[in-house]
């Protein structure tokens, strides 16, 4: 019987032991992990993970229900078409920082999308203080166009007072 892939999304108040409990339950039900992203966002622990197994979607939910309820978390399950060993290498990295205000992410990503930049990974955070919040964002992605074209696409943001750095990513292989 062939394995199905699911994307599991789990969210709940952060506390020690979440990953241990969830991964133990998955292991005990014969499920395997693929690529995952797990991090704390605003006091919540968030998990997105590729999981494979022979189970159907309803069966998977039933099996995970006890551990999810015990942890007080929310679970979302999506059947997905997925493959491992298909990583794309980023060739451009963009870092953005500036006084926090509405629309920074929308403006930056709209400019990138228009320039043909495909985002592989985006992390953003609000740093600074309550009184002076600072928005910091790092984006890694792939673009066919040269770094200079991305620079030009983001130039209006600079004029708007946002600090934008664009760097070619030259991955060292050795």
């Amino acid at each position: 019987m062939s394995n199905n892939w699911y994307m599991l999304t789990l969210i709940g108040e952060d506390k020690p032991g979440i990953v241990a409990s969830v991964s133990k339950a998955l292991f005990e039900h014969g499920l395997n992990l693929g690529e995952t992203s797990m991090l704390r966002l605003g006091g919540n622990f968030t998990i997105m993970m590729m999981v494979s197994g022979v189970h159907g979607e309803a069966d998977l939910r039933d099996r995970l229900k006890p551990v999810i309820e015990a942890l007080g978390m929310c679970l979302h399950v999506d059947p997905i078409q997925a493959h491992l060993h298909e990583h794309l290498l980023p060739n451009i990295q963009v870092t953005v920082s500036g006084a926090d205000r509405a629309g920074i992410v929308a403006q930056v990503t709209a400019a990138l999308a228009a320039a043909g930049f495909n985002i592989l990974d985006l992390e953003s955070d609000v740093a600074g203080t309550q009184q002076k919040p600072v928005y910091i964002m790092q984006i890694a992605g792939v673009a066919e166009v040269p770094v200079e074209a991305i620079e030009r696409a983001l130039e209006p943001l600079r004029l708007d007072g946002v600090d934008v750095n664009v760097n070619a990513v030259e991955t060292y292989i050795g």
Binding site: L39, T95, D121, E123, D125, A127, I136, Q138, A140, V147, E151, R158, D163, V164, N165, V166, N167
Partner: peptide, 18 residues
């Protein structure tokens, strides 16, 4: 993690090509 770098990043060239 890149997240580690978020708070330690040193800006070598301000507002320009890094």
């Amino acid at each position: 993690s890149r997240r580690t770098d978020l708070f330690q990043r040193k800006v070598y060239q301000k507002g320009g090509k890094g």
